[in-house]
């Protein structure tokens, strides 16, 4: 079983960290993982995307042209990656700032209003975990417990008191995500 994700949004939204935590969670479950960022001169406000592959077998190419699941957090990312979801695959998008919603009918489309909810609830710092919660609700490739373990592994000790808040965000995302 192999699941190929593309996660994409603005720099500063936590796209790369979300990918890293997803990959680490896979690692915690003994899976093969690859995290391949589109690194560049981009900083906050620019575009950022990362390919995450979680597999039971060794991963071949870290560079892909199509994906099982695209998680897109802004219009440029949606424009770029909607066409790159494999037929029968999944597109999950945050509706904030989306003027032209996805149109494909041969894939499953889900919407998560994570940015709106994060802004309301003073949860902007864990926005990416709300999104990840939604992703894992649709495709439980790793367990919530593994994600929390990954957070313990990747966050510096001084931030460990924030892990419960991340857990809340993950659960909120699971409730928020819906078809559409």
């Amino acid at each position: 079983m192999t699941h190929e994700f593309i996660l994409s949004g603005f720099g500063g939204q936590g796209v790369l960290s979300m990918g890293k935590i997803l990959a680490y969670a896979g690692l915690m479950e003994g899976k093969e993982v690859t995290w391949m960022p589109a690194y560049g001169p981009e900083q906050r406000g620019g575009t950022a995307n990362v390919t995450v592959i979680i597999s039971d077998d060794p991963v071949s190419s870290p560079i892909l042209s199509t994906y099982d699941t695209a998680v897109v957090l802004n219009q440029p990312s949606l424009d770029k990656f909607e066409s790159k979801v494999k037929p029968g695959g999944t597109l999950i998008y945050d509706s904030y700032g989306i003027n032209v919603p996805p149109t494909r009918e041969d894939i499953s489309v889900y919407r998560i209003d994570a940015m709106e909810k994060a802004a309301e609830g003073d949860m902007l710092k864990v926005f990416n975990m709300i999104v990840l919660g939604g992703v894992l609700k649709i495709h439980p490739v790793v367990s919530l417990e593994s994600v929390l373990q990954a957070l313990r592994k990747t966050l510096p000790e001084r931030h460990h008191h924030l892990i419960p808040q991340n857990g809340q965000a993950l659960r909120l995302g699971m409730d928020l995500v819906r078809e559409g």
Binding site: E32, V33, T34, W35, M36, Y39, P62, I63
Partner: peptide, 10 residues
């Protein structure tokens, strides 16, 4: 190359 350098794996 930059791909292998920047990529994270087990």
């Amino acid at each position: 190359d930059g791909a292998i350098g920047q990529m994270m794996e087990k």
